Simulated assay, not measured.
Amino acid sequence: MRVPFVKMHGLGNDFVVLDGRTESVPAMTNALAAALADRHTGIGCDQLVLLEPSDAADFRMRIFNSDGSEVEACGNATRAVGLLHGAAARIETAGGLISASPAEGGISVEMGQPRFDWDRIPLAYAMDTLTMPVGWEDLDAPTAVNVGNPHVIFFVPDTDAVDLARLGPEIEHDPLFPERINVNVATITARDSIRLRVWERGAGLTRACGTGACATAIGAMRRGLVDRAVTVTLPGGPLRIEWRDDDEIVMTGAAAESFRGAFDPADYGA
């Protein structure tokens, strides 16, 4: 049995999408997700996305990082799936219900409401999450936000000067973060503009991270550094983030289909 897939990306953050809503797909395991994501011996992607039927929404989206770990949310993947679906949809995720719809500039996603309590990030022990009394070398006093998955954000003079490839995994695996953490380093360039780089939990350095853009924008807004609508520019391109008065985060940006293909699960031990 050959299984069809769609290769997609959001600003260079790339996905292998398996549509199990109407087609038969193999039972997804951490090992199979990692094998398919491998860029040398698999299809290659930052995240594998599995679509399934849902009783609570139009469909369910499961997300696996390239190391095989399953995660709660992915903003860029949601935009890609919204493009693939082709119409407005409510989507069930492990991080909660979200919605996606076509919009000017690509796909607009309602990401839900941010969480700030230390045990909702989660952290290993109680502390102020707006200005955390912790640091790693020159990176200190971050803010933490959960936007469906956990993020810590450092505001720095020059995001490109940070050795994120070295510090990212150290912070990701710090015991302070019992479920690991996504690491963001951001530079404020105007009241409506942020530059951002992200070390993604389970995936490493990435060209774009939708939840990272949302978390960083919310962290900057909480600190009064920017207004309630900003453009966050990542290495792969810009995302527009708005924190509405009803506490909902809305992210808008581009997504694209790269190609389609099929694979034999037996080639990957399934």
Rank of each mutant, 00 (worst) to 15 (best):
P235D: 04
T22Q: 13
R240K: 08
V49L: 14
N184R: 05
L32N: 05
S99F: 06
S101A: 14
E52S: 11
A80D: 15
G212Q: 10
V81W: 12
L97C: 10
A144T: 05
E23R: 13
D245R: 06
D158T: 09
G10F: 06
P150K: 01
T252G: 04
A208N: 06
E179C: 11
A100R: 09
E23N: 07
G12P: 08
F116R: 02
R62Y: 02
T29R: 09
N184H: 12
R201T: 03
S193N: 11
G236Y: 11
A217I: 14
A255Q: 06
A57S: 12
S24V: 12
L50M: 08
D46S: 10
E110I: 13
M111E: 00
N149L: 00
L130N: 03
V226Q: 05
D128H: 08
L123N: 08
D174L: 00
N182K: 09
A256V: 10
T78V: 15
L130C: 04
L11H: 08
A186F: 13
P26S: 01
V232P: 13
M8F: 11
F5K: 07
E248V: 03
T143D: 07
F154Y: 14
D14F: 04
D140N: 05
T206Y: 07
V232N: 09
T189G: 09
H9L: 01
D247T: 12
G75H: 13
L83K: 09
P175V: 03
L84C: 04
T159H: 15
A124V: 04
A215L: 14
A56T: 13
E104Y: 05
G68W: 12
L36R: 02
R191I: 12
I181K: 02
V6Q: 13
V49P: 10
G10T: 10
G10Y: 03
H85Y: 10
N30F: 04
E172P: 09
L48Y: 10
I218Q: 07
G12L: 03
